[in-house]
Amino acid sequence: MMFRRIALVACGAAAFALAACDPPLEPADAPATKGSVNTANLPEGFSNDLQDDVSGYYRPTTEVRQASWRLDHVFLGQQQDFAAWEGGTREGQFAPVMLEFVDESSATVQTENGEIHTGRVRVLPRFYSVENGMLRFVGVSEEIGIVQLDAQLNDEALATARRNLGAEGAVMNGTLSLGDAPPQAVGFRWWAGD
């Protein structure tokens, strides 16, 4: 009798435990782990209607970061870079639109330009559109997750900055999303590079 009572209690407890379980996660609902990003609904493709040279480095006017990763710059290439990429030529870690981040927890080395962090990642485009002065970019990074930028170029401010070989004021303004964080407002100044 005692054995029967224990067996009934055990079966009841097991049935109760099973009833309380949540159904298993579907693949689309599964939480992303580091290195895995759900890219199913992200746009793909590349287009531009550039008439003028907008090439250069666009550095944020205020600090933009996710954990130890700080946005160093947005790079825009020359018209021939856009044409080559859109024509199917893809070489190494270069694209006509890309964002570069610096890991500020990484080791530093001394260079002719000062001390720099060795940890860097370039986020290449899965999608970009540069049309009517509006830059739209979507890329994916194992370290940062999904990176989305929507920004409007200011033609007059950009022309002035290019004439002066740089300027402190913003020549591009918009929003940037990093990983799961909400979009944040960001401005960029133009820089010719070293």
Rank of each mutant, 00 (worst) to 15 (best):
A84V: 02
I116V: 14
F75I: 01
G114V: 02
A10E: 04
M98A: 11
P183V: 04
E168T: 13
C21F: 12
W69Q: 10
D194I: 13
G56W: 03
Q93I: 14
R5P: 04
G56I: 07
Q93P: 08
T39S: 12
D29G: 10
V9L: 15
A30M: 14
T160D: 07
S141C: 08
D194R: 14
F46K: 00
S105D: 15
N173T: 13
A161Q: 01
L76M: 08
G114P: 02
R126Q: 13
G35R: 08
E156S: 09
A83K: 12
R4P: 03
D150Q: 11
T108K: 14
G174C: 00
Q184G: 12
A40K: 13
A83E: 10
V109W: 01
E142N: 12
N38D: 15
L42K: 05
D22W: 14
T89Y: 05
R122F: 13
D180E: 15
V130F: 04
A185V: 12
S68L: 03
V130R: 00
D52S: 04
R126F: 05
I144Q: 11
P182R: 09
Y128C: 02
G35V: 05
G179F: 03
A13P: 04
V54W: 10
Q79L: 12
G92P: 04
A17H: 03
A185E: 14
A13K: 06
A17G: 08
T111D: 03
G169S: 10
R122E: 11
W85I: 06
L76E: 00
W85E: 03
V186K: 07
Q152V: 00
A17F: 12
A32V: 11
M2N: 11
V54S: 01
V54K: 02
A157K: 07
R65Y: 10
L8H: 12
D155N: 08
S55H: 07
L149M: 03
G119M: 05
F16W: 12
G193D: 07
R122S: 14
D103M: 06
V109D: 02
Q110C: 00
Q78C: 03
L149G: 01
E44G: 10
T89V: 14
S55T: 06
D22N: 15
I6S: 09
V64M: 08
T33V: 15
A159W: 00
L71P: 04
V9R: 10
M98I: 03
T111V: 02
A151T: 01
Q78T: 04
